[in-house]
Design a protein around this nucleic acid. Structure first.
Lengths: 305, 305
DNA sequence: TTTTGCATTTAGAAAATCTAAACGCGCCTT
DNA sequence: AAGGCGCGTTTAGATTTTCTAAATGCAAAA
């Protein structure tokens, strides 16, 4: 833990933001400084870590292999810090507390909170990443978003979206996959040794019954997605959780088939908060954003072809 | 994510270190600065967050309720950043890569790495938090540490330690527990809705067969431990994972009975690394440290009584 | 009552960081 | 092939932040 004394945390954030944005200018925008300042920070960070983190191209900064490996971890950790800060800042405000699965918080919601805040400056959103299935009515939480086949968190839940999945991997792995058959020759990343989502997808492709290759197993889908980005194999990803990485080009989808798993995104509201107008605003914002995440990627193949 | 522009990450680390150490002097030691500097940093951090984070006592700094809630999350996130940094720094060194469960990394190993580094400066340890059960021999990992009833990661695994569990909770909750019977009147924190470890413990206490109260459910033991610290209920914790929080007084053990779960800590070495002398050094260090973590707390009740 | 251990305050020194502008380099357009 | 555009980098100096060291105040322990 003391090794952080030598590397300022701000350097780590610099790396994370640059890796995610791809150019110094965009990163400088997000951080509210000039590109020159970032260039200096980056040089210092690389010196401190003793590693070259980006190869400079004429169109921006390309993460090196090392950087690509660590940047998802940086994003996750710094994102959690960001949530902690917004939690504290939300105290005493007109707060809407929403609990979501940790992965949904870190891979989707956190990137869109700012947009909600800009549209609704009077509401401060508090995100509680937890698998807390306790009764909403006996909690301090206004809203719960959960994915499952049955309505979650009590009968009052309404449906937000159908869950869909599709395989993702790094561009390098994708180059080895010409036809669906090639899927059986590459490592398949597992979540807790399971193969969630593969059955409906393979069946939709007419490939059921065949055994998939082995591959690394990770404890949660977030680590699996990171593994997919760093070229460890193919992962069957949730549409909503992969969309941002897909947009940034960190992962690609070798096939344009997305399958329904039967699971649904549920939106549950605590009885006491049913009439809170902020809840309605949040829900309609959420529906728009979710639809937008999904719709965008439905269009991609058409534009690409 | 942009809310971090207003609060420097160094402030968050300052808060985390102070909360964990309890006094400015100790925290200043860990950070390598003077107490005066920390006092200023803390004042600035509190101003930026708009919250008082510590009540000043004559013996040190007592975290406020808000601070106690966020500090475990800060510790986890900053600890992960620390691991990422040491991963990068280990590149090109005489590296020993060890994979452990994420919770074991963040709750136990990370706090002891520095000690290992001091004793073995020529070895740089790389910790990979993952539930990767893939064959060690086909990986870049030298060592795997896993907990389970059967030898993990192939037949070459050797036993490190028996796993033991015991209930922990915040001092406030503990005050409500006078006798074992009171356990059935307080919320019981669940990991994934399960009650891991309760059966052997209740049976050892002669309390089997009765139903425990409900309580919040979290996705992993780390969140459960946080929940226990913040007074959300009682959690059946692994000895090794609770020992540091116990030592710091963040949680207490209302009963001095620890039960064997039947699970064992396994130490597995990749074939290619069997003869690596660093592996032996790491193993013997690990055994000493593990024994020390456990022995210390066996003594506590005697000293306390 | 004295001592000890703690956090805080202050002033000035030291260090880190930023901005603005000039610059060099590829790529794309013309 | 020339010009323009967008990119990151460099520089110098100003600015801001952060630190140290020492003095101070406070409360509990001896």
């Amino acid at each position: 833990m003391q090794n952080l004394n030598a590397i300022p945390l701000s350097s780590l954030r610099t790396i994370e933001v640059i890796a995610r944005n791809g150019t110094l200018r965009a990163a400088a925008d997000e951080l509210g400084v000039t590109p020159g300042a970032l260039s200096q920070r980056l040089a210092k960070a690389e010196a401190a870590l003793g590693q070259v983190l980006f190869t400079r191209t004429s169109t921006g900064l390309q993460p090196t292999e090392i950087c690509a490996q660590i940047s998802p971890r940086l994003t996750a950790a710094i994102g959690e810090l960001s949530l902690v800060v917004s939690d504290v800042q939300a105290i005493g405000q007109n707060t809407l507390t929403v609990t979501v699965a940790p992965i949904f918080a870190s891979r989707w919601l956190i990137w869109r909170i700012k947009d909600f805040n800009d549209l609704n400056p009077e509401i401060s959103l508090r995100v509680l990443p937890a698998v807390d299935v306790a009764d909403l009515d006996h909690s301090e939480v206004d809203i719960g978003i959960r994915v499952g086949e049955d309505p979650a968190l009590g009968a009052g839940a309404t449906k937000l979206l159908d869950q869909r999945v599709f395989p993702v991997c790094s561009p390098e792995i994708a180059a080895r996959i010409k036809s669906p058959d090639d899927l059986f020759t590459v490592p398949i990343i597992r979540e807790n040794e399971l193969l969630y989502g593969w059955r409906p997808w393979l069946s939709e492709m007419g490939l059921e019954g065949r055994d998939l290759s082995f591959g690394p197993t990770y404890a949660d889908a977030s680590l699996c997605l990171d593994a997919a980005m760093t070229g460890q194999g193919v992962f069957m990803a949730w549409e909503t959780l992969a969309c941002d990485a897909l947009e940034r080009g960190q992962i690609v989808a070798p096939f344009d088939v997305r399958s329904l798993t039967g699971a649904v995104y549920w939106f549950a509201v605590r009885t006491r908060s049913q009439r809170n107008p902020s809840v309605r605003k949040f829900k309609s914002w959420l529906e728009t954003e979710l639809a937008c995440s999904v719709r965008y990627w439905n269009k991609q193949p058409e534009t690409g072809a």
